[in-house]
Design a protein around this nucleic acid. Sequence first.
DNA 1: CTAAACCTTGACGTTAACGTCAGAGTCAAA
DNA 2: TTTGACTCTGACGTTAACGTCAAGGTTTAG
Lengths: 124, 124
Amino acid sequence: MFIGELSRQTGMSTRGLRYYEQQGLLHPLRRSSGYREFNESDVDRVRRIRVLLAAGLNTDLIREVLPCMTGDGAILAPTCEEMAQDLVRERERMSRSIEELKAAHAMLEAIIRAGEPLVARSDC
Amino acid sequence: MFIGELSRQTGMSTRGLRYYEQQGLLHPLRRSSGYREFNESDVDRVRRIRVLLAAGLNTDLIREVLPCMTGDGAILAPTCEEMAQDLVRERERMSRSIEELKAAHAMLEAIIRAGEPLVARSDC
DNA sequence: CTAAACCTTGACGTTAACGTCAGAGTCAAA
DNA sequence: TTTGACTCTGACGTTAACGTCAAGGTTTAG
C-alpha cells in the first residue's frame, strides 16, 4: 500500500510516517517512481511506535527495541547489554511517570469532586 | 527567602522559578532592590506545580487550579464551570496516558524478561 | 489522454519549558 | 569598605515530533 493508505489505517499523518522512515523506524520498499510501498504488518508497527512514543521513549530507543517485537506478537530478548540497560532505565522512568500521573490525577479528582455537588451554581 | 534558597529547597532552577512567576504561577513580593521574596508555602506550591507539569498540564491550566489548592492541603471547588469542564477533560486525558504508559511498560517488561535469563551472553 | 487525486523532496515553522549568557546592580559578612 | 556570592532583566538557544507549505512528478479511473 502507499503512504496515504497506511495513514488512513493508522491515523498517523503522512508527514509523520515519512518522519518515522527518516528516523529508521519504518523501511518501506520503493517503486521505480520513488513511491513508498508499505505492507500490512506496518500497520501494527506504526501502532507500536505510537504507543512507545506516547510513553516518552525517543525514536533512537524505539529504533532499537522494534526488532525485538516481531509482527506476530512474539517478544525477543534485547540484542545487546547496553540496550538492556537502557530498557531498564526507561522502565523505571515509566514507573515514576505513572506514579506522578496518578498523583496529579488524584489532585484533579479531589477538586472535581469538591465541585460536583455544586453543579448548579449562581456565580461564574 | 530569595530565589536561590527556594531553588535549593525545591530542586527547581532559578530560571524555572522566574518562568513560573512570569506564567503567573508564583507571586513573590519584591524588595525595593527588585529582589524576589518568597515564603515557606512557596516550597509546596512549586512541588505541586511540578507534579502537574509532569502530568502534562500546561501552565495556563495550572494557573487556574492552583487557587483551588490551599497551602494547608485543603481542596476547594473549581471557580467556574468552564474550568470544571477543563479539569474533567484533563482527568480523562490523564487516565488515557496512564493506560498508554502501562501498555508501553508491559512491552518493555516483556523484552527485559526475555533477556534476563541470558545475562551472561557471548554475543553483542 | 486527461484530470483528479495521489506522491515526491526540501525547507522552514511550531510548541513548551526551560538553558545559557551578558551586563549590571545588591547583599552581607569580615 | 571590600569582595564574593547573589540577584536582576533581557534575549537568544534548545529539543522532539511533527505541521505546513511549494514545486513538481505519478497513478489510474473513465
